[in-house]
């Protein structure tokens, strides 16, 4: 009963604020902006409790996102890379002559890719191993060497680049103590235990920095929506 009373009072206050802003501001005349604003408010209504408006907006968002992504991939991958070269531009016909290599360069990858859908059949499901093996093999070959270069060698070099500064000392000290914390072949006792404890502090500071940035990101999203509601929709701010 108390909750319902609070909800009614809250809703009335929000409606009064909304009408006041509509009168004071310059509301958008674009129907799409109104739809976006109503959907935004529907999503935020979840903060009070789960409701039908939130569910509708959430389902719509997921559906539109997936639909958009599928259509973009279809247009840019299948149409641009397979359909057009085979049937429209016919890249394999040069000066009226049929050339087998450009033809196979489109057909073979397409056939290998089509084997991905074999997973939907019971008998031929094993065929999916072929495109997966191709993808895993080619990407492993492509990425092992540059990944080591970018993530191990470069990072180690920059960590060991000793400069006479406090930050350089802290970084080396932090890396060593954190690595000690992840050394599990010996019990963390005595000197090893104390060093590992220091490592925990560095890990906690890293988590703290990460959490601080996460808070900033979430507030930024709210700021983005608030800016949309007040500027683009209601036109009450400049």
């Amino acid at each position: 009963m108390k909750e319902r009373k609070g909800l009614i009072i809250g809703s009335v206050i929000l409606i009064i604020i909304f009408i006041g802003m509509l009168i004071k501001g310059e509301p958008s005349k674009n129907i799409m902006v109104w739809i976006a604003a109503i959907l935004t408010l529907s999503i935020y209504s979840f903060l009070y409790r789960d409701n039908i408006f939130y569910k509708f907006a959430e389902h719509l968002f997921v559906g539109v996102s997936v639909g958009y992504s599928v259509s973009v991939v279809y247009q840019n991958a299948f149409i641009r890379r397979v359909f057009d070269p085979l049937f429209i531009t016919r890249t394999y016909i040069v000066e009226g002559q049929f050339h087998i290599l450009p033809f196979l360069a489109v057909v073979i990858p397409t056939l290998i890719g089509l084997l991905m859908v074999s997973v939907f059949t019971k008998r031929q499901a094993w065929l999916i191993r072929i495109p997966i093996a191709f993808v895993v093999g080619s990407y492993a070959g492509m990425s092992i060497s540059p990944s080591f270069q970018a993530n191990i060698f470069e990072q180690t070099r920059s960590t060991l680049h000793i400069a006479l500064s406090i930050s350089s000392f802290i970084m080396i000290f932090g890396v060593i103590t954190t690595l000690v914390y992840f050394f599990f072949s010996k019990e963390h006792k005595g000197f090893l235990g104390r060093t590992a404890n220091v490592g925990i502090w560095f890990i906690m500071i890293a988590f703290g920095a990460s959490f601080g940035y996460t808070v900033m990101a979430r507030i930024s999203l709210l700021i983005g929506r608030m800016n949309f509601l007040l500027y683009d929709w209601l036109g009450v701010i400049k």
Partner: peptide
Amino acid sequence: TAVSAAQYYPYLNSG
């Protein structure tokens, strides 16, 4: 995004 900024500092530090 701010969420991922912390994880990218090592790449910034290394140049």
